[in-house]
Design a protein around this nucleic acid. Structure first.
Length: 824
RNA sequence: GCCGAAGUGGCGGAAUUGGCAGACGCAGCAGACUCAAAAUCUGCCGUUGGCAACAACGUGCCGGUUCAAGUCCGGCCUUCGGCACCA
């Protein structure tokens, strides 16, 4: 055998696999299916180590499940609409499509060089008209079901990107892509009604047993369900009622002011014929002009202005001042909040600052509170009501329910559930996205583009200029059209869809990627989906994973799929870091996968990245660690080379009983390794320890390098070793399989099974402890009972020596493990 | 502030059900091979004391349960992540 040379053998097998369509998958209802999926990448141009990790994990699973006899779907595609392509167009004058497809070509090449077992026939590219046609079709489905609507709203705007953003895309008040500050703008925009599904998106998290707890908690927080009371306070002077929402109805008797958001619709009415109108308007203008960061950051000062008007607390008839403030959110609840200084710290600070009254309504069971002695609101989650009319003396949690009942009975309030989740803003003022298939007709209003006319194609002849409005809005040939209903001159919608729409259903398209009649055939999707194992980064915990769940639920309700959750199991991989920080160009700590593969081969790159850390933890990149992985593959190569002759000539069946004691022990190691690796891969995704075990097996094999070894056993080891190695390092396993066994791919073999009988040892080592400390070790026959163990232990000179002159309190025996002698 | 995860040798990490702490790998040290080096193969490798046998200590900190705790319980500390004026 020649020297291990990954460059030569990897190219050879990649070519062969491609020629033979080795990873083509077809639907086969007679086989159990397994759908494993890695989050598809944005075609930025090059793979980074995060991709390598993601795909290596997925490929191990896909190959392992195939060997276990599953019909495996393992596809790949590109999430190829989005800003960077358009920015490249502005900067370099290259068309986004050209830039994107060039990048896809390069990344595909890199993926092929990794030796990944994708069925490339199923590739999905979201910017292709054959795909976005169906994205548009799905938009129309949502529209017809009342789940897509356009409305004027105060929305997040990023100047740098020149577009609006969804709430989920605003991180700490900044744009998720370019990190510039986001501010509010009043615009007419398209939304998807994800809030209609808030309740079921929350409730069904319970079904996701195979999801990491932290991801579920993040979604739970994001949805933000709360229960409370909505009730109205009358404003007699204006003949108006102001609704408020509270989760603390038990404090309702303590209202001393009412706080309106600066955006509240009543503010304008309040300003009519109001001597303070100018002042109030100026205050609102100032507040609304502030950025999200200024308005919400940390302990920003609470400010407000008294309107001169009063409303009536319906519980006790108290007259309550109406204020406009900077700390009430317009979009949450009703945009108006009851102010209870004694029960809420923000209200306390506000009332103190502006000299507003305070009324105590809650105190601890065993202690009387006095307002004059308090320096902060009483916010504990237990207490008894005071100054609360008929509810005085009631325990607060009982009072919450009783007060809600009271408000409902009197007809001024209602029990209500509230969510933090807002509707999903999906329109983008950009070119490189799927056009929203809507036509605005002066006579008919909003009209959907007829299904037969889909896709609404992106025009190719457009200009890209820095800071300009969307190229689509300037493209006359795109803009002007006829109304499909009445034939009048009409205009197209020029907004495109958020790319997260494209990625909310791509995993379904893989089941039927070339369907030109529908987004997918129902039987195919119901065979393959839901995804059995989804793998990707934690950064999508809310964004993509919430949207995809929403889409799936809508498609279920529309009768298009039979399942209501898209991803049965989710694995969130850790980041690849170097020198303690995430790899990034700005930090200069990027290691290029392409260079690593060129130097050591894909097998080494894959093996290292799977071995260096458990999949869900961050992984510290180590150039020396890569060397180690490479050395290990070399060791495998050499030890099999050492026994090449006997492996080739050995018969499949051989007499195990004739093996020497040492050989039997080696065979025992082999079968224990098979068991361990199987369990680590199948049940725990502990690829790092699976690889360790294979290394231990190889080390045990090396003990025979200068000795005679029964040919049958050498063959048995080589056979199982290569099968186990195949999912991790597919090329070297294939090459050695070919060299040693000739015909047939290792990847079409069955996963090895272990022989319990081979794992039985005649003797095992047990530990002797005195008072819990290890003092000796002892080889004993397997199956020794407690009494015999104790007797044997007590006979040991070491035990006698150490317990001499002491009284034995008790002796604990754990069969097969240890004896602990407790002596005083 | 609320919620969550993590903390083990020089480093990455292992210990799955409470039962030998440190598997496997990296780095380091030594030996074999070689004129020599590289590569390869072999051995050693938690800390302290000791020539050694061995002993003491050791899984963020303090305490507890237990014959036995990295693992269970109570109380903290640190780091990272998510949410955060959500009424």
């Amino acid at each position: 055998m020649e020297k291990y040379s990954p460059q030569a053998i990897e190219k050879k097998w990649q070519k062969k696999w491609q020629e033979e369509d080795a990873y083509r998958t077809e639907m086969d209802a007679s086989l159990p299916k397994y759908y494993t999926l890695e989050m598809f990448p944005y075609p930025s141009g090059n793979l980074h180590m995060g991709h390598v990790r993601n795909y290596s994990i997925g490929d191990v699973l896909a190959r392992y499940k195939t060997m276990e006899g599953y019909n495996v779907l393992h596809p790949m595609g590109f999430d190829s609409f989005g800003m960077p392509a358009e920015n490249a167009a502005i900067k370099h004058g290259v068309h986004p499509a050209e830039w994107t497809y060039k990048n896809i070509e390069n990344m595909e090449r890199q993926q092929r060089e990794m030796g990944l077992s994708y069925d490339w026939e199923r590739e999905v590219i979201t910017c292709a008209p054959e795909y976005y046609r169906w994205t548009q079709w799905l938009f129309e489905l949502f529209y017809k079901r009342g789940l897509a609507y356009k409305k004027k709203a105060s929305v997040n705007w990023c100047d740098t990107c020149g577009t609006v953003l969804a709430n989920e895309q605003v991180i700490d008040g900044k744009c998720w892509r370019c990190d510039s500050e986001v501010h509010k703008k009043d615009l007419s925009q398209w939304f998807l009604k994800i809030t209609d599904y808030a309740d079921v998106l929350l409730k069904d998290l319970e079904k996701l047993k195979g999801w990491p707890e932290r991801v579920k908690i993040m979604q739970e927080n994001w949805i933000g369900r709360s229960e409370g009371l909505e009730f109205t306070l009358e404003v007699p002077e204006l003949g108006e009622k102001i609704p408020v929402y509270t989760t603390r109805p038990d404090t309702s008797y303590g209202i001393t002011f009412l706080a309106l958001a600066a955006e509240h619709p009543l503010v304008e009415k309040i300003c009519e014929n109001n001597p303070k109108a100018e002042e109030i308007r100026a205050f609102c203008k100032k507040v609304r002009g502030q950025s999200e960061i200024e308005r919400t950051s940390g302990e920003s000062e609470k400010e407000g202005i008294f309107t001169g008007y009063y409303c009536i607390n319906p519980f006790n008839g108290n007259k309550v001042q109406i204020w406009v403030t900077n700390y009430v959110l317009a979009e949450y609840g009703t945009g108006a909040v009851m102010g209870v200084p004694s029960g809420d710290q923000r209200d306390w600070m506000f009332a103190t600052k502006y000299g507003i009254d305070k009324i105590l309504t809650l105190q601890p069971k065993d202690k009387e509170l006095k307002l004059e002695e308090m320096t902060a609101a009483y916010v504990e989650k237990e207490g008894v009501l005071v100054n609360s009319g008929e509810f005085t003396g009631m325990e607060m949690h009982k009072a919450m329910a009783a007060i809600i009942d009271y408000a409902e009975a009197k007809g001024f309030g209602k029990r209500r559930v509230n969510y933090r989740l807002r509707d999903w803003l999906i329109s983008r003022q950009r070119y490189w996205g799927a056009p929203i298939p809507v036509i605005h007709c002066p006579h008919c209003g909003e009209v959907l583009v007829p299904e037969a006319d889909l896709p609404v194609r992106l025009p190719e002849n457009v200009k890209f200029e820095q800071g300009a409005v969307s190229p689509l809005a300037q493209c006359e040939e795109f803009l002007h059209c006829k109304c499909p209903k009445c034939g009048a001159d009409a205009k197209r919608e020029t907004d495109t869809m958020d790319t997260f729409i494209c990625s909310s259903w791509y995993f379904l398209r893989y089941a039927d990627p070339k369907n030109a009649e529908a987004s997918f055939a129902k039987d195919k999707v119901n065979y393959w989906a839901p995804v059995d194992q989804y793998i990707g980064g934690i950064e999508h915990a809310i964004l993509h994973l919430l949207y995809a769940r929403f889409f799936t639920k809508v498609l279920k309700d529309a009768g298009m799929v039979d399942f209501d959750e898209p991803f049965t199991n989710l694995l969130t991989q850790g980041m690849v870091i170097k020198d303690g920080a995430k790899m990034s160009k700005s930090k200069g700590n990027v290691v290029s996968p392409e260079e690593i593969i060129a130097k050591y081969g894909a097998d080494t790159a894959r093996l290292f990245i799977l071995f260096a850390a458990p999949v869900d933890r961050d992984l510290e990149w180590s150039d020396q660690g890569v060397e180690g992985a490479f050395r290990f593959l070399g060791r495998v190569w050499r030890i099999l080379g050492r026994f090449e002759e006997s492996i080739r000539q050995a018969p499949k069946e051989y007499d195990v009983a004739a093996l020497s004691k040492e050989e039997k022990e080696l065979r025992c190691v082999l079968h224990r390794t098979i068991k361990k690796v199987t369990e680590d891969v199948r049940d725990r995704f502990m690829f790092n320890t699976a690889i360790s075990s294979i290394m231990e097996l190889v080390n045990a094999f090396y003990a025979f390098q200068d000795k005679e070894l029964a040919a049958g056993l050498a063959r048995e080891i080589a056979d199982a070793l290569l099968r186990m190695l195949a999912p991790f390092a597919p090329h070297i396993a294939e090459e050695l399989w070919f060299l040693l066994f000739g015909e047939g791919s290792v990847h079409r073999q069955k996963w090895p099974s272990y022989d319990e009988a081979a794992m039985v040892q005649e003797e095992i080592e047990i530990v002797l402890q005195i008072n819990g400390k290890v003092r000796d070790k002892l080889r004993v026959p397997v199956g020794l009972d407690r009494a015999a163990m104790e007797q044997l232990a007590m006979e040991q000179p070491r035990v006698q020596e150490l317990t001499e002159g002491r009284s034995i309190v008790k002796v604990i025996c754990v069969p097969g493990k240890l004896v602990n002698v407790v002596a005083k």
